[in-house]
């Protein structure tokens, strides 16, 4: 591997990485919004909208991103909608990511035990209050691991953006290989830059899992043992004579 070549390519890959991150984050942000709306429509079983969401989800996750991008990039102009490559990339990623996020959030919402909604109802909370104070916090904490997996997956999917002439990491690597045949250096930098982008996301995910996960999980074992001991001493004997 030639250090000089690496040095020369570094700024090119740096710029490409910025584009990848920027388009990736925009697409993921939109995916989260779409996912939240779709999961709520499914969770609350809203008629008609629910069927539309179902169709969207199946369409979106059973077709490859590359083909979705082609549709947006080459197909839409045929019916008069011109799309800029960057917009096309973001919209494509959001179209794909929306369904993944929707299913992730839905599984989180549905994992909340029904008895919690029932006790919230018994306490007089209305539907919105029940959602905000009871269901959502629990759903979020169970959704974090698959959510982080989705974010990583979507960032990696940006590697097909090169197909619609976006100068992302993949495009840069292929371009340089085509021009100068420095295959080793180009591929090495490609891997390194993906790792630079994705490893912090993974670490952030682990951190979030601990931070937002249901509290009391990690301390539970130690504290339970302590409380068991306490309980034995607090039980009062023969205060009430049950029976007869």
């Amino acid at each position: 591997m030639n250090a000089e070549v690496l040095n020369e390519y570094l700024p090119l890959f740096g710029n490409a990485a910025l584009l990848t991150v920027w388009l990736g984050l925009a697409g993921i942000g939109l995916s989260i919004v779409i996912g939240l709306i779709c999961s709520l429509v499914q969770f609350y079983k809203i008629p008609v909208a629910r069927q539309i969401v179902r169709i969207y989800i199946e369409l979106s996750r059973n077709t490859p991103l590359l083909i979705q991008l082609f549709f947006i990039y080459y197909g839409l102009p045929k019916i008069g909608i011109k799309t800029d490559p960057a917009v096309c990339g973001v919209v494509g990623l959001a179209f794909l990511g929306g369904s993944y996020m929707a299913e992730t959030f839905r599984s989180g919402l549905e994992a909340v035990d029904k008895v919690h909604s029932e006790s919230a109802f018994t306490l007089g909370l209305n539907k919105l209050q029940t959602f905000i104070y009871v269901i959502l916090p629990q759903a979020l904490s169970t959704s974090i691991p698959p959510f982080v997996a989705n974010v990583i997956f979507l960032l990696k999917e940006t590697s097909v953006f090169s197909a619609v002439s976006l100068m992302d990491l993949m495009f840069t690597a292929k371009d340089l290989i085509g021009l100068y045949y420095n295959t080793t250096e180009s591929l090495f930098l490609l891997v390194v830059f993906y790792l630079i982008i994705l490893l912090p996301v993974s670490l952030l995910g682990t951190y979030l899992e601990h931070k937002l996960g249901t509290p009391g999980v990690r301390q539970s074992i130690r504290k339970n043992a302590a409380s068991r001991k306490e309980r034995k001493t607090t039980i009062k004997e023969g205060v009430v004579n049950v029976g007869n």
Binding site: D113, V115, H116, E118, S119, T122, L123, G124, L125, Q129, Y133, V134, P137, Q138, S141, T214, P215, G216
Partner: peptide, 29 residues
């Protein structure tokens, strides 16, 4: 609101402390 109920399964909200579980409804409702 004249009726209160306690269920068979432990139905405290797992993400809230005991005190927050108890004060949620009086404060919000």
């Amino acid at each position: 609101s004249k009726v209160g109920m306690v269920f068979q399964s432990y139905d405290l909200f797992p993400h809230l402390t005991v005190l927050d579980n108890i004060t949620l409804a009086p404060c919000k409702v």
